[in-house]
């Protein structure tokens, strides 16, 4: 990615609302063609970061450039497209009218943008009033609007919240295509599970601070979270198995062990050496939610974190 052009460059960005620090020395870059997921619970600073990139909020410290320009400047506005989390287009207008409206505002010929309704799969409803659209169709219209004029940077604020899994898949397929054509995509989400394999990089924001930034696999490895191995023993052999390989015996037949990734093979070899005493082995890799929890430093038990919905 390093040879690609950096579209969004955020360095030491700090923003305060009175005594509350919403963004605390955040560093983040997004390059052309890159898909980056910005993760965080409600109030972590995701929307604030987006609003700063759009030039709606003025930073108290640090620098921020969009396509090399100051946020809110003509050049930056021409380069960025935005889809807010909650957007309700006027019910009395049609999809075609919305696309035409925003194409003109962005200085793009409407005729070149109408096809986007086809891209997002609502061409059939193009001339129907938005009041008759389902929630999924409205969200698709929002995405079509954001794709007008092939933006250099696409900002999507929780774009798939409230979409069914099928629509969500199609949504990401469109984003993949757009990124392949060179658009830098920064999208926010509640859930690591949702953006897994959908983005190139993950940035985790918690209490205004960037806690992690990297490929998901690298982050998971670096977190050194334990792998869980559950060994099923022959009836009556559970204690014997535990004495040979360690761990905790549970429910009379199983032994539960935790190990790090590099210890896994050695441990499995020892389990295999137990021969007939073992009937089954079950390996659970650390879940994405565990990785997210590790980096955000948030305990699910004490903090009501949004889930995948």
């Amino acid at each position: 990615m390093s040879d690609r052009q950096i579209v969004l460059k955020i360095a030491d960005l700090t923003l305060r609302f009175g005594s509350f620090t919403a963004l605390d020395a955040v560093n983040l870059t997004v390059s052309a063609g890159e898909r980056v997921a910005l993760l965080g619970h409600n109030g972590a600073g995701k929307s604030t970061l987006f609003k700063t990139v759009l030039g709606f909020l003025k930073p108290d410290g640090g620098t921020l450039t969009v396509a090399g320009a100051r946020p809110g400047s003509d050049h930056a506005r021409g380069a960025v497209s935005y889809l807010p989390e909650q957007v309700a287009f006027p019910k009395a207008l049609t999809g075609t009218e919305i696309i035409t409206h925003f194409a003109r505002l962005k200085g793009v010929a409407p005729s070149r943008s109408i096809g986007l309704l086809e891209t997002v799969g609502i061409a059939d409803a193009a001339d129907r009033a938005i009041g008759t659209y389902s929630k999924g169709m409205r969200q698709r219209l929002g995405l079509a609007q954001a794709l007008i004029g092939k933006p250099a940077l696409l900002l999507l604020d929780e774009p798939t919240s409230g979409l069914d899994p099928l629509s969500r898949g199609e949504f990401y397929a469109i984003i993949d295509r757009v990124a392949a054509e060179g658009t830098a995509v920064l999208l926010s989400s509640h859930s690591l599970t949702e953006v897994e394999s959908r983005t190139d990089r993950v940035a985790i924001l918690a209490r205004g601070q960037l806690k992690a930034d990297g490929a998901l696999a690298d982050l998971a490895r670096a977190a050194r979270l334990p792998i869980r191995i559950r060994v099923e023993a022959e009836p009556g052999r559970a204690d014997a198995v535990r004495d040979r390989i360690g761990g905790d015996r549970i429910n009379g037949r199983s032994v539960l062990l935790n190990c790090l990734a590099e210890e896994k093979i050695g441990l499995l070899a020892r389990v295999a050496a137990l021969g007939k005493d073992v009937t089954d082995v079950d390996i659970t890799l650390p879940g994405l939610d565990d990785v997210y929890r590790h980096y955000s430093g948030i305990d699910l038990a004490t903090h009501a974190m949004g889930d995948a919905s």
């Binding site: 759009l54 021409g78 889809l83 807010p84 989390e85 909650q86 957007v87 309700a88 505002l105 962005k106």
Partner: peptide
């Protein structure tokens, strides 16, 4: 209230 203002103000207007 409907969220369209942020969309509009993100454009060059």
């Amino acid at each position: 209230e409907r969220g369209t203002l942020s969309l509009v103000l993100a454009t060059p207007i």
